[in-house]
Amino acid sequence: MDYFIQQLVNGLTLGGLYALIALGYTMVYGVIFLINFAHGEFFTAGGYIGVIALSYCIAHGYTQTHPFLCLAGAFSLAMIYSAYLAVGVEKIAYLPLRGSRLAVLLSALGMSIFLQNGMMLTQGVMDKAYPGELFEGGFSFGMVTISYLQIMIITMTVLLLFGLNRLVYKTKIGMAMRATAQDKTMSALVAIGSNNIISLTFAIGAGLAAAAGVMVGLYYGSVHYDMGFNLGMKAFCAAVLGGIGNITGAMLGGLIIGLVEVFGAGYISGQYKDVFAFIILIGVLYYRPTGIMGENIDETRV
């Protein structure tokens, strides 16, 4: 039983991270039908801004006096930076090409390669160590060990997901987003600036990914310029599994992929964990081609 609980916590942590990244894919797809391949790079960029901010804090000794302020600062800086980066990418590389879906898709691929190499050149090819030991520690009961970082990741993920849900379903902005997703011309007629709303969608998605980037850095101890590819790919699968375009679906998909990976590795064998994740994906898509939550795609899509 202890083993099961431990693996459950591991799976929830990983699944939460996937869900946060998957939301960016799904939101952008919901609004402009684009699979934003550069999304993984927004996540990596967030991770790097986090390590830069935390290193600055350490260099000035602020981590001793205000550790949580430092952490909050790192998170907000990373999220704001990635949001701006995403809006910039959208304005430069996607907006002028929006007439053709294929052209935007290729532009997204190109942006991904460009950003990844840009990070390689500016940040170097080595792993950047994260000052994660500040928030190290945890508690254990029986054989189960839950670290503060895991609790932080799960709590932050829940808070961010809850906040996003409130934003999309309970505010004017959310209503505008949903309206833009359904019909850009019609929403323009009722005075919704669809270009602004699309930019906002990119910004929110990238902000969530950046938060995941900082958490990945803290949890795994380092960031690397190409880490966005692997995690981004899994998150994309999570978005497809949940029904791309559907926010709740992305959260669910992320959790399922994370849990399946960890339980597959824990109970059968670590070498097949990706296989299990993809078997689930194929199995679900075979019976439900639009994903788990994908059937009412037109109403709830953002």
């Binding site: 083993y3 591991n10 990945v216 880490m227 995690l231 964990k273």
Partner: peptide
């Protein structure tokens, strides 16, 4: 990056 399952 995640080895939690095998380590558990």
């Amino acid at each position: 990056r995640d080895f939690s399952a095998v380590l558990t």
